[in-house]
Design a protein around this nucleic acid. Structure first.
Lengths: 237, 237
DNA sequence: ATTATCTATAGATCTATAGATAATGC
DNA sequence: ATTATCTATAGATCTATAGATAATGC
């Protein structure tokens, strides 16, 4: 379907869906590709998916043609970043299964996914773009059935309120994860906010744990925003 | 400080801070300016604050020079959009004061601010940019003292949990407001999500109201994203 | 008469590719 | 020998402005 330039001269099954993101086999090529990916994440976080490809190459200290060789179109690049991020998310499943109770499993799920989003501010624009390119590409899609059953069990044992469902959880997590785009100061806050959200999801009579962290006061808040500004100024050269 | 081109030949106090956003006095000019603002909102919502100025002018059916005449720099444009949005937010204060109890006042506050954010998806990028340009420019800044006193009163009367503060509220509202950037389907959801957040903020022993709306199921979710895609495709011509 | 608009244009930056040159792996 | 990189370049699009033309308000 895509990238028909390479001939199937090696004995491999050729052009499977996942094959697109196979890194190149030459040492320098692999390195350049990695540099491009790092640089792309940084610039997409700053300027969204329309970030200049030339600048991405420049920041990776690589010619533009090298970028094009690795990623035939801008959407190829976006899709690769998406796939890479998704691979990291896969690891979460095991952790969820290891949780002792359904409620704990839901906590792990929301924490890990929110953490994943917050850690990489290029993700929100990338996820938005992917949703346009391919509506079936939701990051948590593969967890759907699994989470739905956890939700059912947590309702049954009286820890989760009965008037919410799995999609509510997904939306709330996305919401909390969006805090990563607001600057570094929020990066330390998301656990606290998530905890408040979880308390809202808990059955009314279930006991609440202590909130993690401490509230940002206005001075902190200011310092945060200033910090962001300085950092952004530096990044912009 | 800025825009020193106009000479103070009219008898006015000249160049006050707010004067920058004074619309022009000619009928056609005012119309063009309005068209530019509408078009800027749409394109900034789509592409962020780096949206092409030429395209903004094109979509407003106006020459680029007209855009530059109205907004000397890109940041002038952003600042104007910010000021306009902020003016709408002012109206909220009266509504908050009219609420019968401190808790109700906090609900009105969070609902109105979230609604304000959700209604205009150009706001998140604009607010981020403004935070860089001028760290003191937080939208809710003028409510700060007011909300802080509401928070104190709501804690005292046992409706708000005691381990949160006014900044937590601000962060949570920003979070909920970010749902507007995720597509139209979420636009109907934010009240529901906010309600869950409010339940998390409520003192543990206070009674919870019924959640508004109904959860999105996966089909709804898909339809939503598809809808967004079609709309985005149309908008992109 | 004044104020605003449009067209045209210079110079910068961007996307995308062709062709010459360099680096790796077998 | 193969694979990848870089430089150079065409054509498009962008920012920003100058100068000629059109529309309003008094």
């Amino acid at each position: 379907m895509t990238s028909p330039t390479r001939k199937p001269q090696d004995g491999l099954p050729v052009a499977s869906a996942a094959e697109r993101s196979t890194p190149p086999r030459r040492r320098d090529a692999r390195l350049n590709r990695d540099r491009l990916i790092i640089s792309a994440r940084a610039l997409i976080a700053q300027h969204g998916v329309d970030a200049s490809l030339e600048e991405i190459a420049r920041q990776a200290e690589v010619g533009v043609a090298t970028l094009y060789r690795n990623f035939a179109t801008r959407d190829d690049l976006v899709r690769t970043l998406y796939d890479l991020a998704l691979a990291e998310l896969h690891a979460v499943r095991g952790e969820i299964e290891a949780a002792p109770t359904p409620w704990d499993a839901l906590v792990v799920y929301t924490e890990r996914v929110a953490e994943w989003l917050v850690a990489d501010p290029s993700l929100p624009p990338i996820l938005r773009r992917m949703a346009q390119l391919d509506p079936s590409a939701r990051p948590a899609a593969e967890f759907d059935g699994f989470i739905a059953s956890l939700v059912a069990r947590a309702k049954k044992d009286g820890t989760l309120r009965r008037d919410v469902d799995a999609v509510d959880l997904a939306v709330l997590v996305t919401m909390v994860g969006s805090l990563g785009s607001l600057g570094d100061g929020y990066a330390g806050q998301w656990r606290r906010q998530l905890s408040i959200v979880l308390d809202g999801l808990r059955a009314a009579d279930a006991p609440r744990p202590k909130l993690p962290g401490r509230p940002l006061n206005v001075q902190d808040y200011r310092a945060t925003v200033h910090g962001l500004t300085r950092r952004a100024a530096r990044a912009a050269r």
